[in-house]
């Protein structure tokens, strides 16, 4: 578990619109990489191209290379479904399955794929994942209740539990805390710190303190103007980005002098 991700000259399109251009990025295994940048610069687009969710949008496509531990993810014989089994994702808004109980939500990845597993195996997975997502103590007495009956923050942690239950190599998070209160946010940040022992994590955030707190590396995306493609301006160790970035644009952005 915990593989490296490498993007080489990645161009990402929506139809004929080039949304993200020329990304070269290496993400080391078992690290947390934060992606920051102004709204509309293509952070989500880049993130969704890593697990090939991007191509679900009609007309959307990708050029260039994206590798998981050296394996080309966009190769001709690569199944996007297989890619998504190795690269999990947590969305900005919590989206538990409304027809499923908390228990079933956690093992949704196995259940929906008809994986055969014994009851005790499933129980173990549920407990391990919920503990991993810091949710076990809050829900252990009501695992049969629907997942949509939880609070927003609990639902988001349930979604994280669901994502780690299938033991992916990489975990992508798109603004996972933007709908949460400070306490839930802290809980999730703690969780990210623990998760990086096992997983490679890429997190998009608008909160610079959060990027500084949780990440080892930070990538800054920027866009020159509307209609222009977003670009990766700089990727470096988080403390370098926040103290002495090489690019002027990065410095302006992290110090709040943007635009």
């Amino acid at each position: 578990m915990g593989k490296s991700v490498e993007a080489k000259d990645l161009n990402i399109y929506y139809g004929s619109f080039l949304a993200v251009e020329g990304v070269n990025m290496t993400i080391k295994p078992k690290t947390v990489t934060a992606l920051i940048g102004p709204s509309g610069c293509g952070k989500s687009t880049f993130l969704r191209s890593i697990n090939r969710m991007h191509e679900n949008i009609p007309g959307a496509r990708v050029e260039g290379r994206l590798e998981l531990d050296g394996q080309d993810l966009y190769g001709a014989n690569v199944d996007p479904v297989g890619v998504r089994r190795q690269i999990g994702m947590v969305f900005q808004r919590p989206n538990p399955f409304p027809t499923m109980s908390i228990y079933d939500n956690v093992i949704a990845g196995m259940k929906l794929n008809n994986k055969k597993a014994s009851k005790s195996e499933l129980d173990d997975t549920v407990e391990r994942s919920l503990r991993g997502a810091n949710l076990w103590n809050e829900v252990k007495d009501r695992l049969e209740k629907p997942g949509s009956g939880l609070s927003g923050g609990q639902q988001q942690r349930l979604c994280i539990a669901r994502a780690i239950a299938v033991r992916p190599d990489v975990l992508l998070m798109d603004e996972p805390c933007s709908a949460l209160d400070p306490i839930s946010t802290l809980a999730i940040e703690d969780l990210i710190n623990e998760l990086k022992n096992d997983y490679t994590i890429v997190i998009v955030t608008h909160n610079m303190q959060q990027a500084a707190r949780v990440s080892d590396f930070t990538g800054f995306f920027n866009i020159e103007g509307t209609g222009k493609p977003g670009k990766l301006v700089e990727l470096d160790e988080t403390k370098t980005i926040f103290s002495q970035p090489k690019q002027k644009a990065t410095e302006d952005y992290v110090s709040g002098r943007f635009g």
Partner: peptide, 9 residues
């Protein structure tokens, strides 16, 4: 999307 992201066809 949640299901797709879990690798469900």
């Amino acid at each position: 999307e949640a299901a797709f992201a879990l690798g469900v066809p």
